[in-house]
Design a protein around this nucleic acid. Sequence first.
DNA 1: TTTTGACTTTTAGAACAAAATAGTCAAATC
DNA 2: GATTTGACTATTTTGTTCTAAAAGTCAAAA
Lengths: 204, 204
Amino acid sequence: MANSPGIDQAKEKIILDAAQKRFGHFGLAKTTMTEIAADVGMSKASLYYYYPDKEHLFLAVIEQEMDEFIKALTAMIGEEEPASKKLKQYTSIRHEYFRRLISLAKLGEHTLSAMKASMDVFKQNLEKQEKELIRRIFQEGIKNGEFESFNAKAYADLFVATMQGLRVSVIHKKTLSETKEEDYQLAEQYQKQITAIFLKSISK
Amino acid sequence: MANSPGIDQAKEKIILDAAQKRFGHFGLAKTTMTEIAADVGMSKASLYYYYPDKEHLFLAVIEQEMDEFIKALTAMIGEEEPASKKLKQYTSIRHEYFRRLISLAKLGEHTLSAMKASMDVFKQNLEKQEKELIRRIFQEGIKNGEFESFNAKAYADLFVATMQGLRVSVIHKKTLSETKEEDYQLAEQYQKQITAIFLKSISK
DNA sequence: TTTTGACTTTTAGAACAAAATAGTCAAATC
DNA sequence: GATTTGACTATTTTGTTCTAAAAGTCAAAA
């Protein structure tokens, strides 16, 4: 009753997991509904009983990832740790999530971008949540005297946008040649350094 | 004798300017050699006397822009000003150059990226020069006691990459809808803020 | 309520032709 | 000799049709 009236939650999860495996392996374009159906051991038509179309199924997979990501973040933030440590942990977790999303769409990002409005809304929503979480970390740091006083909201927006830029650059650079492992690592290194600089500039 | 043996420099400049106007207006893809030739008042074949192909002509236009950009930067850096002020000025000049390049390729960036090796080499070269110039600003600031001591090279690499990321984000975000003026302005604002944070973190 | 086989519709790609544009060159002009 | 060009060829882009594969639907069955 949580979803559509009386839809079997367990069955839905099974489909979701199968889809996740396929998408993670071959990306959105190279995965067919028939394949997913076969994996689950049901007919393609049944998939459409649970999900209106392929896009929604894909979105559901991504949303599941996002939920885990947000959950991990929220839990981490809830702990009794210095705000500075939390910010650093955010950087790691966020980069990891980025890599997972990339492999889902495969070569993706192009595919991701190509996907219409629904994806945009999804992204904006995530960005908003992230900015809010980072703002809280800043706020907390200010309150407990770890940081000096500053505009937490503005800094959070800037911080998230900056990290996003460093990640996007990775994808953007390579023309046809696929992105290399070292590119991801360089991006991660930059993200860590930026985090350190942010911290240095606001720490008491 | 500076270029090919005995090529008319003035004529070349005329072609270059015409090409720049066309490219700036319609972008690379929507500009034909015939049009440029007509603008200049000569036959298309003559264009090929001066430039081996369309790509080289386009590259020459971009290189002219780059030369102006680098020249402006170098002059600015040569002045007797605090390193911090120079870094801020770099941010403005760089963003302006970015916008000019975008309009040259039009909707471009996609077009820019699509253009093969030569463009990649060009970009890498520019990036290298930029990083070197920024490194010098940092170095100078350290030497004259304006900044505390730090690894100028590493910071320059990070700084340039970060600014690049913020610019690239602008292009990347919009799926089909063209990039809006406010997007550019937000990116510029972020770049300025990041510059300020860098300065704050290294200033004595 | 859930599942499915049989169905229709849509999309992606191959193959082809036509048109537009890039690029070449021998001869003419300066 | 340097420069220019008309008339050419080569390549790329665009539009078309065709086809196979995949998406998506639905009435009937379980």
